[in-house]
Computed example of a mutant assay.
Amino acid sequence: MKKLLALAAVAGGVLFVIKRNKDAKAEADLWRETTAPTGKPLGSVSTNGTTPAHATGAGQNN
């Protein structure tokens, strides 16, 4: 019974480490994507933090 409990503890530890590594990789990929250089000066973010308006549509001063 002790061997089975020890085996379960080891298996749980291995699964925990695998999940943690997968989460760390996903976070690193997200960070890399977020901080990647873009062709636009500020990417798609406005200087005041709002989403920029499109060239066509309501609310445009012509």
Rank of each mutant, 00 (worst) to 15 (best):
M1K: 14
M1I: 13
M1R: 13
K2S: 15
K3Q: 14
K3T: 14
K3D: 15
L4M: 13
L4A: 15
L5V: 15
L5T: 15
A6I: 11
A6C: 09
A6G: 05
A6Q: 15
L7Y: 07
L7P: 08
L7M: 15
L7R: 14
A8I: 09
A9T: 07
V10L: 12
V10A: 14
V10C: 10
A11D: 00
A11M: 12
G12W: 01
G12Q: 01
G13Y: 03
V14L: 15
V14I: 15
F16V: 12
F16R: 10
F16Y: 14
I18R: 12
K19F: 11
K19H: 08
R20G: 06
N21C: 10
N21I: 13
K22M: 07
K22N: 12
K22L: 07
D23R: 14
K25P: 01
K25G: 07
K25R: 11
A26S: 04
A26K: 02
E27C: 03
A28C: 00
D29N: 08
D29T: 07
L30Y: 12
L30E: 08
W31I: 13
W31T: 14
W31R: 15
W31M: 14
R32E: 06
R32A: 12
E33Q: 14
E33Y: 10
E33C: 06
E33S: 13
T34S: 12
T34C: 04
T34R: 15
T35I: 01
T35K: 02
T35E: 02
T35Y: 02
A36L: 03
P37R: 04
P37D: 12
P37Q: 03
P37M: 11
P37E: 09
T38C: 05
T38H: 01
G39P: 00
G39K: 03
G39V: 07
K40Q: 09
K40D: 00
K40I: 00
K40V: 01
K40R: 09
K40N: 08
P41R: 01
P41Y: 04
P41V: 03
L42Y: 10
L42S: 09
L42V: 10
G43C: 04
G43D: 01
S44E: 06
S44M: 03
V45R: 11
V45S: 09
V45W: 07
V45N: 10
T47Q: 00
T47I: 04
T47K: 06
T47G: 01
N48I: 09
N48D: 13
N48W: 05
G49I: 02
G49Y: 03
G49F: 03
G49H: 07
T51G: 02
T51I: 12
P52V: 06
P52W: 00
P52K: 00
A53Q: 07
A53W: 07
A53D: 12
A53G: 02
H54C: 01
H54D: 01
H54R: 03
A55C: 00
T56D: 05
T56Y: 03
T56Q: 04
G57T: 00
G57N: 02
G57A: 00
A58E: 02
A58I: 09
Q60N: 08
N62Y: 04
N62C: 08
